[in-house]
């Protein structure tokens, strides 16, 4: 791999975007490598969760301008489609995916972070969409996921002005869920992921899926879908183990079955 590093630790995968000579800007090669990594991890049942981060003090700057500026319209569509597919793959990943971000979290990089379950950052993080400054627009689902997360007015402000949003403001508007000290960000996020992944993996997966699918349909239909998923939980070993352990006041051992 030329654009990523991957480390497996305690059944968790740590993927780092790694193009340090250009602030981890996103090119076609990185998209394809990410896609193939997430596809492999998806079919690997030993992997319980993914932490996505970037090397050298940055998550990712936007699309690689050296590559993007020469695109024909057809190449632009192929680039955007590949990015959108990657983001959908991350969003639908059947186990938790947390983004641990710092430094630049821009454009395509921010769109990839938005597709994760949620974003954790340190105080150096700066978020923004500079696409309009270059005469284009965010195209990896950013115009759709950002307003759903922070509201339409704030999303328009960020995309229209291209201004950078600092870590505190990002926390306040709900772009980031929690801030950690720069020295311990990766450790803190890793610990949080470890803790999450010690819970019932089937219920984590179902919870993710009903939240994401339910967001696209009306509330009444969504609640019925949730009811059915809830009922399915009661035919799993995880439910018997989880509730049994609670009653017996011991630590549960979930099998994901």
């Amino acid at each position: 791999m030329n654009t990523l590093t991957i480390e497996i630790k305690d059944s968790l995968a740590i993927i780092s975007l790694s193009r340090p000579d250009c602030l981890n800007s996103v090119n076609m090669e990185m998209l394809k490598e990410l896609q193939s990594q997430f596809e492999q991890l998806r079919s690997d049942e030993a992997i319980k969760g993914v932490l996505l981060t970037g090397v050298d003090g940055h998550f990712a700057s936007g699309g690689d301008l050296d590559e993007v500026r020469h695109f024909t319209p057809l190449e632009a569509i192929a680039f955007a489609e590949t990015g959108q597919k990657l983001c959908s793959l991350i969003e639908a990943f059947p186990r938790p995916v947390l983004a641990a971000v710092r430094g630049y979290v821009l454009g395509a990089g921010l769109e990839i972070a938005l597709a994760c379950d949620y974003i954790l950052a340190d105080e150096t993080a700066q978020f923004g969409f500079k696409e309009l400054c270059y005469g284009v627009l965010p195209a990896f689902g950013g115009t759709q996921r950002l307003p759903r997360l922070v509201g339409k007015g704030r999303a328009k402000e960020m995309i229209f002005t291209g201004r950078l949003v600092g870590a505190d403001e990002a926390l306040r508007i709900g772009l980031v869920n929690q801030l950690f000290p720069a020295v311990s960000l990766l450790d803190d996020v890793f610990k949080q992921l470890q803790k999450i992944c010690s819970y019932g993996l089937l219920s984590l997966q179902m919870g993710k899926e009903v939240i994401d699918t339910g967001a696209e349909i009306n509330l009444q239909a969504a609640c019925k879908m949730e009811r059915d998923a809830f009922a399915v939980c009661f035919s799993t070993a995880d439910q018997k183990e989880g509730m049994g352990a609670f009653i017996e006041k011991r630590k549960p051992r979930f099998s994901g079955r």
Binding site: Y118, I119, R148, N177, S203, I211, E226, F230, G242, M243
Partner: peptide, 29 residues
């Protein structure tokens, strides 16, 4: 998720509509 279930009382739908999907996922996860 500590008990091996999801809620069946509309929480997975109403919570994200109130606090956003990222925060809802954090609360559940």
């Amino acid at each position: 998720v500590k008990l091996g279930i999801i809620t069946g009382f509309c929480g997975t739908q109403k919570l994200p509509r109130l606090v956003g999907s990222h925060r809802a996922k954090e609360i559940f996860m």
